[in-house]
Design a protein around this nucleic acid. Structure first.
Length: 495
RNA sequence: GGCCCGUUAGCUCAAUAGGUAGAGCAGCGGACUCUUAAUCCGCGGGUUGAAGGUUCGAGUCCUUCACGGGUCACCA
């Protein structure tokens, strides 16, 4: 018997010795299954309201699995708690009930062991719902001591590397990931109820498209070809609209070979949905509905606390043109905004790499640096420059602007949506413009995807499409400031 | 990648000005049949992230490296 860790602490050696003793006694430590009646969470949920008298009148037998969390031994009686990732439940162990031999056996149980407790419910003098144990047995032995009971696991790195310890010790962690799960479930319900079809499209692509980002590259041995992990599902989802699927959505991972910070993880989860026959204005309405629905369903509120801000999803949300947002929040005069040279200069000072800057990209840089942070309440930023939107239709009134919006909440870009470009000839031109930029050294420009253009040549009806970052959405809904707090296993360098 | 901060017992943290590395929890032994950060008595536990350097003497000062956090850059 060897543990992964090479150098063992005294406590680990003691636990191994206890295991040995258990084997000598022929006690099953790692059984094949457990006859449970309730989880800890279910006991607390279902019996929380029963009074002491009700519990005395009628016997409520339970068989509950859980991890031993805190032991208070007082001679021939012991109190301890068992926990699952949502709740904890007190257990009362008495020598006169379980028998002397069994009571002494409890010495071989440690904090951290997973056990099954069988008994009846009662309330203690202080009123705490408690299992009066009649039997208890091992479900698994823990060979390592748990982190400190009061402070929990504080080391941020360890919390990410050993998320299981975070979940065992810190109830807030479990709560965060529960909300994440509920968000995704409710998003599915929202779209399913509206007749959308959930689909899955390739994660490995020959031409990574649908966004402006650098991809991860890999290689397929049998076919002998380079493949890329997808940066977005967009072009495939629109092929499905061509194929007549009127409303589709996908919730899945995207991969972008970029830096890591509190708002970016190399793999992240995106919702993308496409609906034929609608434009980006209708998408804004749908987006408002979706967020309001999620806030009501999950938090029973229309306003959420995020840091020291209160974010209101009450409709209607602010809609402001990209240009005007820069004027309003960026502190530029209209004259300065139209002065191409001045704008380029300003952006060059804000960006490290100013080689491939154009007027439109410069505006985007200024927006990112100076404007985005200042927008806290849900705000649609509409009609950004067409040049940075190669897959969107041009705006009807201003052909240099895109029929597109970005949704900003709490200084983060939450969503990006547009009236999809459906004209195959214009799409091809836009791809070629992007290719020209790539020639000039812009690695994030879009690659030409003629297979996609060919799909458009068969006829893509007018379509509205949108992407929503699920991780950032979860951050807003769980009041977390780092994306790593909402991803169970964020990318870390190996130890 | 740049800059700043952090890394000390299983965990959470101390260690004045460079002078014998400590506490709480956890663990071990003992007392205790309504405790809940249980209490009381006693005990053990350290390559101070790694490698160099300065010094009579380094957890502490210097250099390099590793990992993490924050921030800037790039991105969503």
């Amino acid at each position: 018997m060897k543990l992964v860790q090479k150098e063992l602490s005294d406590q680990e050696i003691i636990r191994l010795e206890k295991w040995k003793k258990l084997q000598e006694k022929g006690i099953e430590v790692f059984p094949h299954q457990a006859e449970k009646s309730h989880s800890v969470f279910e006991v607390v949920r279902d019996f929380y309201d029963l009074t002491r008298e009700e519990l005395e009148e009628k016997v409520y037998p339970v068989k509950v699995p859980g991890r031993i969390m805190a032991v208070r031994k007082m001679g021939r009686a012991t109190f301890f708690h068992i926990a699952d990732f949502r709740d904890r439940l007190q257990v009362y162990l008495r020598e006169d009930i379980v028998g002397k031999e069994n009571y002494e056996l409890f010495e071989l149980f440690d904090i951290g062991d997973v056990i099954l407790v069988e008994g009846r419910l009662f309330r203690t003098r202080t009123g705490e719902l408690t299992v009066l144990a009649e039997k208890f047995s091992f479900l698994a032995k823990s060979f390592h001591p748990l982190p400190e009971k009061w402070h929990g696991l504080q080391d941020v790195e360890l919390r990410y590397r050993k998320r299981y310890l975070d979940l065992i010790m810190n109830p807030e962690a479990g709560e965060t990931f529960l909300i994440r799960s509920q968000l995704i479930a409710k998003i599915r319900k929202f779209f399913d109820d509206r007749g959308f079809i959930e689909v899955e499209t390739p994660m490995m692509q020959v031409i990574p498209g649908g966004a402006l980002a650098r991809p991860f590259k890999t290689f397929h041995n049998a076919l002998g070809i380079d493949l890329y992990l997808r940066i977005a599902p967009e072009l495939y989802l629109k092929r499905l609209i061509v194929g007549g699927m009127e409303k589709v959505y996908e919730i899945n991972r995207n991969f972008r070979n970029e830096g890591v910070d509190s708002q970016h993880n190399p793999e992240f989860t995106m919702l993308e949905f496409y609906q034929a026959y609608i434009n980006y204005h209708q998408l804004m309405d749908l987006t408002e509905e979706l967020f309001l629905y999620l806030a009501r369903e999950i938090h029973r509120k229309e306003e959420l606390q995020y840091g020291d801000q209160s974010i209101s999803f009450k409709r209607p949300w602010k809609r402001i043109k990209f240009r005007e947002a820069i004027l309003e929040y960026g502190g530029l005069s209209p004259a300065r905004l139209d002065d191409e040279k001045a704008v380029l200069e300003m952006a060059a000072n804000l960006a490290a790499d100013s080689r491939s800057l154009t007027y439109s990209k410069a505006l985007d840089v200024i927006f990112d640096k100076l404007v985005k942070d200042k927008i806290i309440q849900p705000t649609f930023i509409i009609n950004p420059p067409k040049e940075i939107s190669p897959l969107a239709k041009s705006d009807r009134e201003n052909p240099e602007e895109a029929a597109r919006f970005e949704l900003v909440i709490a200084g983060m870009e939450l969503a990006n949506a547009f009236s999809e470009l459906t004209d195959p000839f214009e799409q091809r031109e836009r791809f070629e413009e992007q290719a020209a930029m790539r020639q000039k050294g812009d690695e994030e420009s879009h690659l030409v995807d003629l297979d996609y253009v060919e799909a458009l040549e068969y006829g893509l009806p007018p379509t509205g499409g949108e992407g929503i970052g699920i991780d950032r959405l979860t951050m807003i809904f769980t009041n977390q400031k780092s994306i790593r707090e909402v991803i169970l296993f964020p990318l870390l360098k190996p130890r």
